[in-house]
Design a protein around this nucleic acid. Structure first.
Length: 947
RNA sequence: AGGCGCGUAGCUCAGUGGUAGAGCACCACCUUGACACGGUGGGAGUCGUUGGUUCAAUCCCAAUCGCGCCUACCA
């Protein structure tokens, strides 16, 4: 067995790579194509971009999905987590073009074929890097099924989908207004457009006014624009029909000052708004969405003035060849010179920017392919209305519905080279379009061989929309599809509901006849400590791998601002450091830099946040806390192993028969933890799962049960020892299985060290090869025992009471004290007797005496807990002033609580309306408090006499 | 402009119609043979503000302030 020697401190750098290697050599994560859907569990990994490297968003989805997947697998489900990467059209092409630019080349220098070869080469070089990084995080997908959206089979699925949609009249080509990016030289879908709002209190543009002279020489009409250069494409001026300023001008024409053109002043109540600008709008049908509509309404035609690169074409007349921004200034200047300028005013517009290049987009007229959305959207809306697909958290349902019911046709063609080329061929002879599955050799319509394929490729999201079934072999009717479609869960970020989730819903229902997944789980964004989105510009990006492997603060900052330098972090300046430290104040508390927190600690940390919160603000000191928890698990296991090597086998198929109160108690708490984790994982509340297990393991198993084991191991009878050993070993073993979906590496390592006798066997009696393929804990592993919890609670509170007296009276831990416990309850008395050794050990008392209630001697530290009186005689040592202060504090606390409840009980309306159990609980509590106050009062009186 | 979300301890976050919880941080004590990446004890919040519903509101409703996100428009 490859395992550590359990050398002292926990070291993830040692543990994690070893288990990663073992997992890779194993078949643990393989799913089976059984052809039957029952008992299957399937999640499709949201495919990261080939260009990408691991970021916090990936780390988060790996944590959430892997926990669900491991949990399902351990429950014996036929579990498929299918990994893959996306070709990410624009993103990848941009990266490769950037690389070319460093060699002084553009893609046009290479030509389409050689450029695509180049991208493939780049993909081969770096394409699997993201998988390696997923492995570092401990992800457990079925690697043998890894897919790439440009694989031959997935490309065939894309073409099949395109052709079918075309045959069904749902895929069509149209000449419409689109958002054009002059830098990327492609059209973008509405979703790929970013809006840049102006900063508060600042103007980002100006509204420039100028006059058109009327053709008949009778005057002029003044229009206003933020884009003066577009006037070169103007074909009308629109005014509101009821606007008295312009009513008489309707029907007249104006003369263009720079090109030989006359055009009319028209009435358009839809577009013209008398309250805006001058009330007269210049109409540029080819370069504005509203103007285009207006132009169509009035049959104005369109004049395109821009080249694809954003320079002006021949229509620009004297301005032809100029860049659009240069042309803007030139047009303004020319208008001034002609005496047509009418001033300008500061103005604000929300620029439409390219998501990739950040360039300002130009609305342009262009022929593109569209998918008709309405017939696809309707069933997808219905599916959610009927609950066949459910969103968690459910408030996203509204967002989905709103978008789906206001949906526009989807522009799916892109003027790129990297992607799935559109399977449409245009005939030079008859002008017809041939769309088919196999590359045609002749025009479908006239038989001509002079056909050329559409140059464009499909939007990346088109192939992504098919992901839940294209990855399972569609369009063939495969066993994989039968087994895993519809998938169980789709887990992803809320930021791609429209891009991806909605489109998968539509395509899944359309092509498969069934929703692609029954639950959509949406997680939030991982942000910096102050809640700011991570970005290179802000300098607050943290690479999860730095957290896993450890790094100096400077290295992390270098990554954050994108100044990754091998070796030293050269080039960092004070501003970079300040930006980063402002974003992460708690880094100041990590003097030795970032330790290797390990993938398990990072997973546990990410899992500890409510997944449905919109933001997860990265807090490094909290992460450190979970790293400490890993160490705690490590050490507890290490301690236990020194005692349980000879543990007896667990009674067949059941949990140990608990002999003592402490054992019954810890098994009961274990049952609670099992329940908490089970519910947490199945209800998409990993935070509740992590907290259940953290609470149990640290505060119950380690702080109490382990400590209660020690006196038994020291001085118990053989039978007692054997029993405690079994219970301890059992709790550990179940804990390891319980925590495995959250912390796969650490738990594998710890579990591998447990004696075979204690490890849960499979139904065939064989010890599983690893936790990854072991059974998840269930009701057979532990049982709640509320009676044990109650009595144990008294013992715990009594011990804590003694400690508090000692701490607050300043009694040194070494002092030889005698603790007297007085109770009239024989059950408690028996418990105190049974745990006399533990009581001494845990309170550091020399002697513990259990006795019946009686007169109180003078000079004692005193407390009253659950009717148990705790007395610590300290004749000679005690400071009456301190003891008095302590008792007064206790009395005040009890009185305050009691008063509050009494006030409530005095309210007749409360008695009449509140549920009976609430009233009874209150009454019982008041009785207890009254008794306590009485006894504390007596004690206080005696102390006052002394003082 | 419309929609959504958030505002709880110094920080990061859970939570509930019955007078509040965690981790970290803080204070004091303890180097006890799993762990100082530890143990013990302690302090700390008028649950953004104002109204309303209720016997009872941090929780439900309304308004308001502050922050964030999304969608749309912008001559």
């Amino acid at each position: 067995m490859s395992s550590s020697d359990f050398s002292k401190p926990y070291d993830p750098k040692d543990v994690e790579p070893r288990w990663r290697a073992r997992a890779e050599a194993s078949g643990w994560y393989a799913a089976r194509d059984v052809g039957a859907h029952e008992d299957s569990f399937c999640i499709m990994i949201p495919p990261p971009n080939v260009t990408g490297s691991l970021h916090m968003g990936h780390a988060l989805f790996i944590t959430l999905q892997d926990a669900m997947v491991r949990h399902a697998r351990m429950h014996g489900k036929n579990t498929l987590w299918l990994p893959g990467v996306d070709h990410a059209g624009i993103a990848t092409q941009v990266v490769v073009e950037r690389e070319l630019r460093r060699e002084g080349l553009t893609r046009h220098d290479l030509g389409r074929e050689r450029f695509i070869d180049r991208v493939w080469e780049w993909k081969r070089r770096s394409g699997d890097r993201i998988f390696e990084q997923l492995k570092v995080m401990g992800a457990s997908p079925d690697w043998s099924r890894a897919k790439f959206t440009m694989d031959p089979d997935l490309s065939a699925a894309v073409r099949e989908a395109f052709v079918r949609l075309h045959e069904q009249g749902l895929m069509y080509r149209a000449n419409r207004m689109v958002n054009w990016c002059p830098t990327c030289r492609t059209v973008l879908s509405d979703l790929e457009v970013d809006r840049e709002e102006p900063e508060a209190g600042r103007f980002n543009s100006e509204l420039f006014s100028f006059a058109y002279k009327l053709s008949d020489g009778s005057g002029e009409i003044v229009v206003a624009t933020t884009r003066p250069e577009t006037m070169l494409g103007d074909l009308a001026i629109a005014v509101h029909p009821d606007d008295p300023r312009y009513r008489d001008l309707i029907g007249k024409t104006v003369r263009h000052p720079f090109v030989d053109r006359e055009f009319p002043i028209i009435a358009d109540a839809i577009l013209a708004d008398p309250t805006k600008g001058t009330g007269a709008v210049k109409i540029t049908p080819a370069h504005d969405f509203n103007d285009f509509e207006c132009g169509r309404r009035h049959g104005l035609g369109e004049i395109t003035i821009l080249n694809p690169d954003g320079t002006l074409n021949a229509e620009g007349g004297p301005f032809a060849g100029m860049d659009r921004f240069a042309a803007r200034e030139a047009v303004k200047k020319a208008l001034e010179e002609k005496g047509l300028a009418r001033g300008s005013a500061p103005h604000n517009i929300a620029y439409a920017l390219c998501q990739r290049s950040k360039d300002i987009l130009e609305p342009t007229l262009s022929p593109q392919w569209y998918v008709k959305m309405q017939p696809l959207a309707e069933p997808a809306v219905k599916a959610v209305e009927e609950g066949r697909t459910v969103f968690v958290p459910e408030e996203w349902t509204k967002t989905y519905m709103h978008w789906m019911t206001h949906i526009q046709d989807w522009c799916v063609s892109r003027q790129l080279w990297w992607g799935h080329q559109i399977p449409a061929w245009y005939c030079a002879d008859c002008g017809g379009t041939t769309v088919q599955r196999e590359d045609p050799s002749a025009c479908q319509h006239c038989g001509s061989a002079k056909i050329t394929q559409d140059e464009d490729v499909l939007d990346t999201w088109f192939s992504s929309a098919l992901w839940p079934f294209s990855t399972l072999g569609w369009p063939a009717e495969t066993d994989a599809l039968k087994t895993f479609y519809p998938t169980t869960v789709m887990e992803t970020g809320y930021d791609i509901i429209f891009f991806w989730v909605a489109r998968m819903m539509m395509m899944g229902i359309h092509f498969m006849g069934e929703v692609p997944f029954s639950r959509v789980l949406l997680h939030g964004l991982v942000c910096d400590e102050n809640g700011q989105k991570m970005s290179k510009v802000k300098g607050n990006v943290i690479d999860p791998l730095d957290l896993v492997h450890g790094a100096t603060v400077d290295q992390v900052i270098a990554n954050a601002v994108g100044k990754r330098v091998s070796g030293d972090a050269v080039g960092l300046d004070a501003a970079d450091r300040k930006k980063f430290l402002d974003a992460y104040p708690s880094v100041g508390k990590l003097p030795e830099g970032f330790r290797a927190f390990g993938a398990d600690a990072l997973r546990f940390y990410l899992g500890a946040h409510a997944p449905q919160s919109r933001k997860i603000n990265l807090n490094l000191s909290r992460l450190q806390g979970y790293r400490d928890f890993c160490n705690k698990i490590w050490n507890a296991t290490r301690f236990a192993l020194t005692h349980i090597a000879d543990v007896a086998p667990r009674p067949t198929g059941d949990f140990p028969t608990p002999h003592s109160l402490a054992e019954r108690w810890i098994l009961s708490r274990l049952a609670a933890a099992v329940e908490g984790v089970e519910n947490g994982i199945t209800q998409f509340r990993l935070d509740e799962a992590t907290s259940a297990v953290y609470q149990f393991f640290w505060y119950e198993l380690c702080d109490w049960f382990l400590e209660l084991c020690k006196p038994v191991f020291d001085a118990g009878s053989d039978a007692e020892k054997a029993s405690y050993k079994l219970t301890l070993a059992h709790c550990l073993e179940v804990s390891h299985r319980l925590m495995h979906p959250l912390m796969p590496h650490l738990t594998e390592e710890c579990w591998s060290h447990l004696p075979d006798a204690i490890r849960r066997r499979r139904s065939d009696g064989v010890v599983p090869e690893a936790l990854a393929v072991a059974a998840f804990p269930n009701a057979g592993d532990a049982r709640r025992d509320l009676d044990a919890e109650r009595v144990m609670g008294v013992l715990q509170d009594t011990i804590e009471g003694v400690r508090r007296i000692c701490a607050e009276l300043g009694i040194k831990p070494g002092a030889a004290i005698t603790v007297r416990l007085r109770t009239a309850d024989p059950r408690y008395a028996q418990t105190f007797h049974d745990y006399e050794g533990a009581l001494r050990r845990l309170t550091r008392a020399r002697e513990v005496v259990v006795e019946a209630p009686g007169e109180r001697p003078r000079g004692v530290g005193y407390a009253s807990i659950h009717g148990v009186e705790v007395l610590i005689p300290l004749a000679g040592h005690i400071d009456p002033a301190k003891e008095g202060e302590r008792l007064e504090k206790d009395v005040a606390k009890a009185r305050k609580e009691s008063d509050g409840i009494t006030r409530r009980l005095a309210n007749a309306n409360f008695i009449a309306n509140a549920p009976a159990e609430v009233v009874e609980k209150d009454q019982a509590r008041v009785r207890e408090l009254t008794e306590r106050i009485e006894r504390l009062g007596d004690a206080l009186a005696i102390v006052r006499e002394l003082g």
